[in-house]
Design a protein around this nucleic acid. Sequence first.
DNA 1: ATCCTCCCCTAC
DNA 2: TAAGGTAGGGGAGGAT
Length: 966
Amino acid sequence: MDPYGAIQFSDWKTYMTNKQAKLKDQEKILEESSSQAVPQIFNGLSIYINGYTNPPQSELRRQIIIHGGDYQHYLKKSNVTHIIASNLTQAKCNEFRAYKVVKPEWLMDSIRQKQLLPWNEYRITGKDTAQKELPFQQANKQQIPQQQQKQQKLQEEKVEEDMENPQGKVLNANLLSVPWNRENTSVNPGFVKKYYSSSRLHHLSTWKSEIKAEIIKKLDEKFAVKGKGKKRKYDGTRIVMHVDFDCFFASVGLLDRPHLKDKPVAVSHVQQAKVDSSSDIASCNYIARAAGVRNGMHIGAAKQKCPELQVIPYEFDKYKAISETFYEVLYEFAQEIEPVSVDEALIEVSGDSLMATDIRNRIREKTQCEVSVGIGPNILLAKLATKKAKPAGQYYCSPEQVQQFSVSDLPGVGRAMTVKLENMGVSNVADLLKMKLPTLQSSFGPKKGQILYEFARGIDERPLKHEQERQSVSADISWGVRFETDEQAKRFMEELADEVSKRLLSIERKGKRITLNILRRRLAVGEAWKRLGHGECDSFSKSIALAIATDDSETIAQHSLDMLFSFKFDVTDLRGLGINITKLESHHGNETKQQKLSFSPTKETSPPPNNLPPEIDPEVFAELPPDVQEELKRQYNISEPGPLPPSPKRAENNTRPLSSQPLHEQQNLRTTSTEIQDIAIFDTSSSPSEPILTQPLASLPDIPPWSQLDPTSLLALPESMRQQVLQLYSTNPPSKSKYNYPVQLPPAPQQQQRHHHHHPDTKVSIRGRTRLASKRSPSPTMKGTTLTQMFNPKKSPHRHPSPEIRPPWESSIWNELPASMQAEIQADHRREQLARERNIRNDHFREARTKLMDNAASTAKIIDIPLPSQNEPKLLGNSAIEDVRQVLYQWIEAFPAGPEPEDVDVVVKYLLELVKTKNLENAQLAIMYFDDVTKQKGTVWRSCAKNLKQMVSDAVKALYNCGLRC
DNA sequence: ATCCTCCCCTAC
DNA sequence: TAAGGTAGGGGAGGAT
Ligand SMILES: Nc1ccn([C@H]2C[C@H](O)[C@@H](COP(=O)(O)OP(=O)(O)OP(=O)(O)O)O2)c(=O)n1
Ligand SMILES: [Mg+2]
């Protein structure tokens, strides 16, 4: 625990490395905790492991770390001192020529002799690289067959499309005509709050987050107070305990209901259950389990199995309170702790089964509830042991005993994997043991394959997960979602956005990507089998990248609504909605403060001039010079393109034997669309033979609009303001106005499908997916086009929606649409014009919609991404300018006499990449910073700075014909 | 080879 | 009646 604090706050270099791989600080915990016990023979060495090795990579890595070495996940020229490989391809051999490349034996022998042996005797030379078959497998690569299959699917779709949707929105009307249904669905204002207050799964998720945060806090306090705390001594045999309440909710509920203790009991929302009740059982006691009742089962089904089942209500507050007591106890015993759930944790201890008994006694004493403890030398075995320990017991599981389990008992092996294994003739761990590693890896991927392989042998070297920065914040609801009107949907989305915003605020994070997830009822399918549930659905998603991280409710709502309505789905078909915020900016970054400074105090009192888009803060806008304002407004009016000629793909993954949905047994028929990122004008590799390219190029001297902003004054702006301005320029290029600015094509949309089916006992779902447009590699006609040219050749921007905007009925597919749909689309057209979604995308959606009409299997592509965000340039893994500055600072400080050429290379590459990806802002900031810091340094550094500046400046000039002022 | 994105899958 | 949420691991496949 303490090692975490130590690395986090004391060792800068380690900190940086941490950012390169999430696992890093886990290892550091290991390193720290073991440093006393083991000779630190690899101190100062930085070791990278290439490919598959004979002692497996994980073991080598562990050894390196516990012996004081620095394990590198990636080959970084500046720090790696040794590379370990069992065999090398010729290519690798060449690539590694400059390194000390050694066999694993060097490492193992050194450890055995407790001293660093000369690496020369273990070096790998070219001839050592026996071309042994590597276990590595690249699955698939059957692109041609896939393509053909997809084509076939497409054909099928076309046929099915023409059928009329057998059911209308009557479903909703019927449902919502009942008052008590209205109250409990999304048509009711305040539904989001109400729903979450009753959702057990929501509570489980929230609690877990809270517990994680709590643990971080405790670690920090401990670190602050004691400096260093106790360490786990590493002696090669871990003891992991898995502590888990028996039937948690049920047990807690029984505390106040002792009279029910000897009866079968379940926790559910529905007390007076009839056999058709579809309420879930969250938890049932072991008496009920003896009758076949299970957690997650529907109460109706449970009552059938066990008519005398007693149902008790949820008591969320009690669960949380008891959980807190539970964790307090565990903190006393644990050297490491990983929260699994509100009622369940993994701890690493240096104790035995006596300690487990202690723990159980303490928890019983303090909570009156029983926990069971699974003990093992690793996480896998501890978790398996818990199964044997329950109820109210403890158990030690040794590696051999894993053979007694079935594969579905293995953690991480769920329904899908169980089925897949079943199809391979593997149902027990004993069967799994017979499978060869390469076989498993080719079926499940290198990592999952390896895990399975090791699990079958009782091996599991995963360390307990310590705290990791949260990567996403989301809110989804797919129960009770029923709308009659767009207004209702809008209000619901606003509530949802508000929820997300609150969650972001509460953890003080902001995110740069908003993803909207939609579940839409499978057309041609009736009501959900679960009351007010989502039923069989297709799932759609669309995301947007922002230049400025946000936590603002209105911003999130606006974007989400834009995305939602861009689908042009009938709101009565919506069954689930979710907003996910990702690309969270670092918690410790300092930009947050800056943004807060310039945001919102007067937002409400100064309404956005001229309907500024949500991402522009009106206040910020107001501070801009008038001419800049004008330019921004003009540019923002321009619609963005969504040029997405649908080239459908279809994939289906049918895993449910009972499904009436046939037949496609093909698995993983999957293709991925990618976003179009390139703007031809910046695409220096574009072939000049593409005529269309020449046009925007010719317009280049016209000065890209943003270049008219004085970079210096831009830099003087507060961070948030600057980002907003820059975002405008980079994501909302002018269409027609006086600038002919190249446009970034929006990424292709994705859609995936999801079918849910009912089974009396277990919830089963079938997922399949389909795509249109497998690949968005720029088509010749699009490449290099401007937005304007592509979609709105000569239309005025539609800030004032103009009838001149190409109407849908000009679309080439218009005539293919059924008349009813044409009418509908015409009705939609006005809103469509207003939508900030790009018209081409809307066209695309319209088409997608037809394809989706009555068959679940088709797809559209969507999504816009205003930002050049993919493959964001990174310097040693860092892209945030604050981090980059720190890297630069560290670098400069580390080499007082001047930089190593190859390091300069790395920086140059990074800067040029920034320029190429149009992130001139960061390029400038980095250069300025570098300039600054090197001012006090020797001539070598100063001239390096000068050269860097020149180089970047040249690049900017060459690419954009404007100067870099700094 | 490795990154990144878009998913699916899993767990409670 | 009923409250089917959510974060993170990792695979597929495109980009580089
Ligand atoms: N499908 C599920 C599974 C679990 N839970 C909740 C209620 C459980 O009490 C709690 C803990 O889950 P466990 O898997 O640990 O199950 P129990 O604690 O109920 O039983 P046991 O651990 O004895 O198997 O999470 C839930 O709401 N829905
Ligand atoms: Mg439990």
